[in-house]
Design a protein around this nucleic acid. Structure first.
Lengths: 333, 333
DNA sequence: GATTAGCACTCTAGACAAGCGAGTGCTAAC
DNA sequence: GTTAGCACTCGCTTGTCTAGAGTGCTAATC
């Protein structure tokens, strides 16, 4: 396959990305300046079809790219030069300042989905790798104990425990010290195995220990943020209501999304085209995502899901921007 | 309008609820035993059309009920006897036991949406009506302070504040007492106005006070839980992709949903049919919701959104069950 | 007076045919 | 290697027709 053939494939793909209609040889000859006639383009297109990059829905229609074409496009012929896109894009770094961590991710998700017109998916996961840094118990009522746990990651949690009898303040201070001492460095799932001797208040303190374990476990759940799902329904390929329903279904299955996007270790942007995705409606879509691993602080996956004929350059540019933001935010990797 | 006319309207509505097809006089005569011929039904249907309860899409189609019919049905002719539905329904009270409050609501939402095959919407809102009960500061690192605030509702929050210099433990204990004393009973939005004298650590403690105000404000946001949105796309009236997109859009607008469902004060189930809803895609849908007001503990709205031809009895039964659960859970109202 | 059978009428959905137009593949000439 | 030209294919649109469902009206019946 020579340069021109590749250029024609590129033209077909990029035309199809914007039009969503089968692309004919005349259109290519007219809109893209190859200096050859439509007949020549036709010969090239016959070759491309033979090679399995494009196919025609029927005899008298143009050609549409198949998965293999997009894969080839992404790997080989796409140039990442953004030219005119770049300027439209609101600098993500402006989102770094305010609010909580989750808020930032939410804002970034919204911005990316608005910019790309596809759906963005963010998964905030906290693993069991975090460990306890500090435990503190305070009297909050006659028989109510407020319990605070701070993790190594500086994440903290708190909750109330009802006890069977009043526990004097000085005892609580002692128990706080004792628990911090014994539990410091303990991973979430090992809390209940840790034996601590609490004179006089054995049962109540056992209850507290149990509560600590339960709350840490609960807090370590994942959070899924999806923005711009409705953008997908503006795309003709998803107008069919069965497809639409499948997409909504898939996007609602948090567990499935997590398994899909939480492939740790790879510190780079992953692009999955069509059947390279293993799940539900994604099999007919393209997903682009990146996992950020913050060790004890957890893990974030951020991705975009769109049609096969995704604007790969534009989405990739967004992903790189997100990448940069994450680097700035955590100064790591 | 006599009894029979009403019964025929009821039959038309209930037939249309299940079939989603215009209902003809023959169908009514055949399926529902009125002991009269289709010609008689026809006369009655002409009357019902004249009264504005039903209309035909075109001459040779049957009749479909309009909003007015559903309203009349709900107000007057529907009997709430559930007969055969009742048993299928999983007792919601089984969800009371485990997990956190939000989890319970999530589970209930999922159950209701599965049972009704419509979408369920839950809004958990916490208003500025809560006040501070207790403030506690602990040293978490050399220049890191862990700050815990417990509200009157027993909801607690915590966060880290970085200070300019190390503050000794005994000072922190003193400041904890001081802040609890001065801030107890203070509403979230009045924190910054409260003047407290902190000898030697004025600036750092001012920073902490500011952080307390910010975090309370942030925590008082609303949480929206939507389950079963994809159920709606199985319904023929929502197969049109524009409608589908509108629904997704509307369901994603948290702020809009909150305004719509957070009408406080009414301790009863509200049914809004079609244009009685003021917002987006809901104008062509029926919503049924109930707001639960827990005073200082906040407010929950729970509702179901479905087509105009909703199975009103079934949904109402679910809503009553949710009602019961909430009563049991909070033993109030 | 209420009910009903019967009938003419209306309108849609679906089937079928014809023609258009976009696009292709092939061939022969450049 | 490129291109003009042409025959061919096939989906899409338009128009026509028919079957079927449902209606409204009328006259007969209970």
């Amino acid at each position: 396959m020579n340069q021109r053939t590749m250029a024609i494939l590129k033209a077909i793909i990029e035309e199809y990305v914007t039009s969503a209609e089968p692309v004919g040889s005349k259109t290519v000859a007219r809109k893209y300046d190859f200096g050859v006639s439509s007949a020549t383009i036709r010969n090239e297109m016959a070759l491309l079809e033979h090679l399995g990059f494009i196919e025609s829905p029927h005899t008298s229609a143009g050609r549409i790219p198949v998965e293999k074409a997009y894969r080839f496009y992404v790997n080989t012929i796409m140039d990442e030069n953004l030219s005119n896109f770049e300027e439209e894009f609101v600098e993500l770094s402006s989102y770094m300042e305010p609010d909580s961590f989750r808020k930032i991710i939410e804002n970034v998700s919204r911005e990316v989905s608005t910019y790309t017109h596809y759906a963005s998916i963010a998964i905030i996961a906290e693993d069991g790798r975090d460990s306890i840094e500090l435990v503190h118990v305070i009297k909050a009522g006659k028989r109510e104990i407020l319990c605070i746990v701070m993790m190594e990651s500086r994440k903290t949690l708190n909750f109330m425990v009802e006890v069977s009898q009043e526990i004097p303040d000085e005892k609580l201070i002692l128990f706080s010290k004792l628990m911090t001492e014994k539990l410091k460095g303990v991973k979430s799932f090992n809390v209940e195995e840790t034996k601590i001797d609490f004179p006089d208040y054995k049962d109540d303190m056992a209850k507290i220990m149990k509560a600590i374990a339960a709350h840490i476990a609960e807090e370590c759940e994942v959070d899924v943020i999806i923005e711009g799902a409705s953008n997908l329904f503006d795309l003709p390929e998803f107008h069919d209501h069965n497809t639409a329903r499948d997409i909504i279904r898939t996007l609602n299955e948090q567990q499935v999304l997590c398994n899909m996007f939480r492939k740790p270790g790879k510190n780079e942007i992953t692009i999955r085209i069509g059947s390279e995705n293993e799940i539900g409606a994604f099999k007919r879509m393209t997903t682009m995502y990146r996992t950020f691993d913050f060790n004890t602080r957890g893990m974030i996956s951020f991705g975009v899901a769109g049609p096969l004929r995704m604007n790969y350059r534009k989405v990739l540019a967004s992903m790189r921007d997100v990448d940069k933001l994450m680097h700035d935010m955590f100064r790591m990797i």
